[in-house]
Each structure stands twice: as C-alpha cells, then as structure tokens.
C-alpha cells in the first residue's frame, strides 16, 4: 500500500463520479432511477467514435458536438417519452427507461458490431508526474472535470435563480406548477443537462478505457452505487462517493488481491444503503 495506489484509486473514483453525475441529477430532480443512463454514456462514446472516423476529429474536438447532440436528445426524450411515463408513477419510469436501455444496446450492437472499441487520443497514454508518482493524465482530467462540473452545478443549484426554480420543481412539482413554474420544461432541461454530463463522461471513459454495446450495464451499476452511497439529490455527495468507491476498490485490491474488488464495492453499496439509506452525506439540496 503506497501513495501511488491511493492516488490512482481516487482518480479512478473521479471517473466513476463523472459517470454518476448525470444519474444523480435526474434521480434528485425527477425522483427517477434512469436505467438508460449507461446507454447515454456509451452512446456518447459511440457518437465520438463515429465522428472521429467520419470527419477525423479527435475525440475532444468531437466532444462539443456530442454534448450538444446528447443534450438535445435528452430534452426530446423527456418531453416526448419520459414525461408521459412519470405521470404513471415511478414503476413506469423504471420500466420505461429499462426499455430504452434494451433498445440502446440493440442499436449499438446492430450499428457497431459486438467488438470492443476505444477512442484513441494522445491523452490516453499521457502521464503526469507529481513527486515520485506517475499519474494517468486522462484520469487526472476526468477527476478535474468531475470536480469542476460538480462545483458549477452545486453552486448553480444553490445560488442562482434557475437553481431555485429547479429545487422548487424537484421538491414539490405540484406547488411549483401553481407558482407559475413550467415544471415540464424544468424537468426536460434537467434531463438534457444530465445527458450532456453523460456525454462528457462517455467521451472520457471511451478514451480512458474501451467499450462494447453491453458496457452500459456495468457503468449503470457503478453509477447507481455511487449515487446511493453519496445520497440522493446530493451532487457533492456523488463526487465524494465516487472518490470513496475508487479508493475502497484500490485498497481492497491492495489488501485482498484483485479477485474481491467487485465484491468489496457492492458490499459497501449494500451496507451504506441499509445502514444509512440517505447516503454518506445525507439528502442533498435537490
């Protein structure tokens, strides 16, 4: 066990937090476990791949395009599909987004084959030296982006007028509606934002690692674990939980060998859920 192991664990956790951020936002605002979140992340990876191959853009040059497309997709998704489902209760939301996830996997498999893909970028193989330790540049970037986005979102939600509208719509949609807030519009913007966050995560994940049409499941599972451990509606909690999950995974590998790393993470997930259902940092502002 040394500083490098702990630092790398934390950085991996930063990537987890980034993947979980959009899920956390939707869970907090719409009270919806978006089972299609993993598909949004992987969809962005495939979108960037398509752009890099078609117009020979680097993944990061493709990023703005992918983010905008994802946001539009998220907005349309909420307006055309999810709103109607959510009116029917949370069950319908879970089942409907699950249906979307199945459709997404089918679309990736038929559009891109089942083979593993990866986004190539010089960032993936670059490193940063701090003192005696070498850190992966892409993970440092992912963690920095996760911290920055969390800070912007958390401040935006707590300090701005748009943020208070979002909080009002989240905590009591009916009353918010009476006060003249267009709740449907607010929800659609929230899902658009979440899809954009998922897109950022997807591109960075695709650069750092690789993806297949069924990668969405493992991404969704780790994101759900992170969101629940951090506390629902608590974006700062999501960031902290992401880092914690990465750290615990690294420590478990150091202590018990690699075989138990999944087990440790899911056990942590289960224990936090039953001991402190509101998450490590408690319910958030949303």
């Amino acid at each position: 066990m040394n500083a490098t192991t702990i630092l790398n664990g934390l950085l991996m956790g930063g990537l987890y937090a980034l993947v979980a951020l959009g899920l956390s936002l939707v869970f907090g605002v719409l009270r919806l476990i978006n089972l299609a979140h993993g598909v949004l992340v992987v969809g962005a990876s495939y979108g960037a791949l398509e752009l890099t191959q078609l117009v020979h853009l680097g993944p990061f040059a493709a990023l703005p395009v992918v983010v905008v497309v994802a946001a539009c997709f998220g907005y349309g998704l909420q307006r055309l599909v999810l709103t109607n489902l959510l009116l029917k209760g949370t069950e319908a939301g879970i089942v409907g987004t699950f249906g979307l996830a199945v459709l997404g996997e089918a679309a990736f498999a038929s559009g891109f084959t089942s083979n593993g893909q990866s986004l190539s970028s010089s960032l993936a193989t670059a490193s940063i030296r701090i003192g005696g330790t070498t850190l992966e540049a892409v993970l440092v970037v992912a963690t920095a982006v996760a911290v920055a986005l969390t800070a912007v979102l958390a401040l935006g939600i707590s300090r701005t007028r748009a943020g208070s509208v979002l909080r009002a719509a989240a905590s009591d949609p009916a009353t918010a509606e009476l006060m003249g807030i267009d709740v449907r519009q607010v929800f659609a913007v929230a899902v658009a934002l979440a899809a954009a966050l998922a897109a950022v995560a997807g591109v960075l994940y695709g650069v750092a690692s690789s993806f297949t049409p069924t990668s969405d499941t493992s991404l969704l599972l780790i994101a759900v674990a992170v969101v629940v451990v951090g506390g629902v509606g608590n974006l700062t909690g999501t960031l902290v939980a992401g880092l914690a999950v990465g750290l615990v995974q690294a420590l478990s590998v150091g202590l018990f060998g690699g075989g138990y790393s999944d087990f440790t993470v899911y056990l942590l997930f289960f224990l936090v859920l039953v001991v402190r259902p509101t998450g490590l940092l408690g319910r958030g502002a949303l």
Partner: peptide, 16 residues
C-alpha cells in the same frame, strides 16, 4: 502475479 474480475477497468496499482 495479478488477478482481477473480468470487468476490471483499473489496473493502475498493478501496473505501478
């Protein structure tokens, strides 16, 4: 001699 679950995406501690 490093072992890990099939879906592992973090090899940094092993590589180090």
């Amino acid at each position: 001699d490093y072992t890990f679950p099939v879906s592992t995406t973090d090899f940094t501690s092993f590589v180090t």
